[in-house]
Structure formats: structure tokens, C-alpha cells
Nucleic acid binder design. Structure first.
Length: 376
RNA sequence: GGGGAGAUACCGAAGCGGUCAAACGGGGCAGACUGUAAAUCUGUUGGCUCAGCCUUCGGAGGUUCGAAUCCUCCUCUCCCCA
């Protein structure tokens, strides 16, 4: 994997770049649709590619390991072959499930024992095991196994958790070094900075992660309920330490405004379930602001979902029709809303990239960040 | 013509003398959702000058300290028999 910086914004830390993988190039800053179980919920892979114009999508190690399981993924030749997506894929390691499934797992320095949310069966995830699983899934970018700490998180816990995450990272690096990709293309390991909302822990972690010389670096443990100011403060702090010539990935972020602000701090990659999950629940993100399409006021608004929208669905369907579909719990409603939101997110990061290259990102960002936060 | 059952808030449906402005569903309205245990979850849903008051359980009377709940008549629905 390679990263080339294309352009830097003179008035902020924003940059435009290009990641090259064996499955093609990724223009940064980029938003990566989340496809936890091997599918971007509600969308055909064809639409993710040609309508949303996604350049890379996510898969999840924990979920894919449980279902369909490694046998199937190995038989078919990896996730790309399985779901038909021939562009880059990134897999999260299950570190987020250490957080979100906290009441069904036991964490030790050795690893984590999960109780499956599907059938209750027990499974052990160690850094070595997770690397093996990510090898079998076959993503282009594989995430180190970490603990995403909750918020709030007391200092003592955050510090000891960080120590474990760093220890696990060493083991991930070692395991990746000692194993080969299974399908003939390369896999890049991204380590993850943790440290909750504590400056000294974040600095310590960022310095440690930077010292590993990975192809790209991630910032985790944010957007878990902390105030936005804390999230930006930590992101800023960490971005100043992580190497400039490697992509920076802010995990799990976020709202359109979060993404714009974080790009300004030097982040290159994002992922979030928000466009799909919130879309299914009737929340639309548009260039003019946020719409709760379930609200009564849209019932007779026959204008396009988003007149400036980048997706086919924006032109074809009206707000009133989409409201009807969502309110009626029609599957198509969830599909349209998800597709619209993802297309908007991808449009937004493409715009950001263009403005970084043209040199007016900072001023554009300030206007746009306010606009996308409007409640319509 | 004869016999029986029933009418409760937007809808369905509990309640069968006080703790009932009335359970529970649905619908309506609003909110939440950030590396997806989420096509999920939460709040609210008679009115008002709102820790109190007013009007409500088909209609009109009545019994009672007190009625959605008991009695009488009326209106309307549904079922069975002829």
C-alpha cells in the first residue's frame, strides 16, 4: 500500500492524497461506507460503486467470523469474491465489539473471550487469531486488534487499557510479519491510537503508534459519547504526532460536520454507520441541512429528496414519497434513504478534496459545516 | 316475529362501585442513533390559568357519600332461531 500527498491546505492541516492498493486507488479525504456483515445495508454493491461512488468499504472481523465463517470465506477466496466488490476493503478487527458487546465478553491481557450475540457460543479473540481471521477475510487494509474504551472512562482504566492495546499491537505486527496474504494481494496493517480523552495518554499512544512505521494510522476510541470539543481536541493532538506521509483514519466518525472539522485537523479517512443506520431511521443528510423525513411537514412536499443531490435517488424520488415509504416501513424507503445519505457523504468528501486542491478549503469548510448542521 | 350479545379516548381492546383521564396494542406526533446485537430504541397522545381544576366511557333519568362499572327507559350494532 502506498500513500501520496497530492496537496496541502495552506490555512488548515487538511490534505488531499491518494492511497494505492492492489484493488485500486483511493482519493483522500475519503468516507468509507460500513458493510459490517459484508454488505452495505440496503444497497446493491453496484450502486455503492457507481451511484454512491464509494472507493473503499468496510467489513467487520467479528461479524464475518461468526457468519458466514472462515470456511466459506476461505473457500470463495476472500470477501471481495464473496460480495462482488472489486475495489479496496478495510476490515475492522472486532475492537469496537470489545466496546459495544462489553457485557458479553471477558477481556484479559491475552485477549478477549466473546459470547456470540447470535447463539451464545464462546469464542476467543487474541491479536494473533484476529490477524489470521483478517488474512482469511482478505481485506486490503486490516485493523489491529484494540480495545475501544467507553466514555466516560476513568484514567486508571484508560491507562491500563492503552497498555493492553499497545501490547496487542506488537503481537499483531509480529503475526502479520509471520504470515502471508492468502489471495495474492497485499494487506496493510493499521495500528490504532487509544487513550480516551486524556491528553498525556493520547500523546503517549500516538508516539508509540507512530514509531511502528505502519502504512497508515488510525485514531480510535472517539465518538463514543464524549463532547465534540473533546473529540476535536484529541484528534488535533494526535494528528500533530502521527506521520504526515501516512494516511490518518479517524474511526467511527461521524456527522457531516464532524468529518469536515476533522479533515481540517489532518484526517484522511472516515467510516461511520450514521448514513445507513440513520437513513433507515428516517434521517437525511443534505447539502442544506438535516431532514427528519418522518416529520409531518414533508407529507406533501413533492420536491426532489435533494435538488443538488449526487445520487440517482435524489432526482427520481420526492420527499413526500420517501416519507410515505419510511413511515410505512417499506423496505424501499430504507434503501433510498441509505443510498441518498451515502451519496451525500461521498459527495461531501469529494468536494472537500477539490477545495483542498484549489486552496480554499478552510473558508469553504466553515460555510459548509454550518450548513450541514441546519435542522430543516 | 322470538332469543341472545354488545356500545369505552383517533382505531382495536381491557376495566365491571372508590387507588380511572381510564391498562395494553395499533395509529398519530416528536426525539435519539457516530470503527452496526439497530428496517432499532425512547417520549408523548382529552382540555386548561397544569403538583390543581374542568369535560369524558352510546343517550336520558335514577340508586349511592361516590358510577365507565348497579337500576329503568331510549337509540344503534352484531349473532342465532322462525
Amino acid at each position: 500500500m502506498q500513500f501520496n500527498l497530492v496537496s496541502k491546505d495552506p490555512k488548515s492541516a487538511a490534505r488531499a492524497g491518494e492511497i494505492t492498493t492492489d484493488h485500486g486507488k483511493i482519493n483522500t479525504p475519503i468516507f468509507m461506507p460500513v458493510g459490517t456483515a459484508g454488505s452495505v445495508k440496503g444497497l446493491h454493491i453496484h450502486d455503492v460503486k457507481t451511484d454512491v461512488n464509494a472507493e473503499i468499504i468496510l467489513g467487520n472481523t467479528y461479524h464475518l467470523y461468526l457468519r458466514p465463517g472462515l470456511d466459506i470465506l476461505h473457500q470463495v477466496g476472500g470477501l471481495h469474491k464473496f460480495n462482488g466488490w472489486d475495489r479496496p476493503i478495510l476490515t475492522d478487527s472486532g475492537g469496537y465489539q470489545v466496546y459495544s458487546l462489553a457485557d458479553r465478553r471477558k477481556l484479559t491481557r491475552e485477549g478477549v473471550v466473546f459470547q456470540s450475540h447470535i447463539d451464545g457460543s464462546k469464542h476467543q479473540f487474541t491479536p494473533e487469531r484476529v490477524m489470521d481471521i483478517e488474512r482469511t477475510i482478505g481485506a486490503d487494509i486490516i485493523m489491529a486488534f484494540d480495545e475501544c474504551t467507553p466514555y466516560p472512562c476513568d484514567y486508571k482504566y484508560a491507562a491500563s487499557s492503552l497498555d493492553i492495546t499497545h501490547h496487542w499491537l506488537d503481537r499483531c505486527v509480529e503475526q502479520v510479519k509471520n504470515t502471508e496474504p492468502q489471495y495474492g494481494y497485499n494487506q496493510a496493517l493499521f495500528p490504532i491510537v487509544q487513550g480516551s480523552t486524556y491528553r498525556d495518554l493520547r500523546v503517549k499512544s500516538a508516539e508509540y503508534i507512530a514509531s511502528k512505521g505502519a502504512d497508515g494510522n488510525a485514531i480510535g476510541g472517539l465518538s463514543v459519547g464524549e463532547p465534540h470539543e473533546d473529540m476535536y481536541e484529541m484528534t488535533d493532538l494526535v494528528c500533530r504526532i502521527l506521520p504526515d506521509d501516512k494516511p490518518r483514519y479517524l474511526m467511527g466518525v461521524g456527522t457531516p460536520a464532524n468529518i469536515l472539522e476533522s479533515i481540517a485537523l489532518g484526517v484522511d479517512m472516515f467510516d461511520c454507520v450514521m448514513p445507513t443506520r440513520n437513513g433507515r431511521n428516517g434521517q437525511l443528510f443534505t447539502s442544506e441541512g438535516i431532514i427528519n423525513i418522518k416529520n409531518e411537514k414533508w407529507k406533501d412536499d413533492f420536491s426532489p429528496i435533494d435538488p443538488n443531490g449526487a445520487s440517482m435517488v435524489d432526482q427520481v424520488y420526492s420527499k413526500a414519497y420517501l416519507r410515505h415509504l419510511i413511515v410505512s416501513k417499506e423496505i424501499l424507503g430504507a434503501m433510498i434513504a441509505s443510498q441518498h445519505n451515502l451519496a451525500f457523504y461521498l459527495w461531501l468528501v469529494r468536494q472537500a478534496r477539490e477545495h483542498i486542491i484549489s486552496g480554499d478549503f478552510a473558508s469553504w469548510k466553515n460555510v459548509m459545516a454550518a450548513k450541514v448542521n441546519n435542522r430543516l
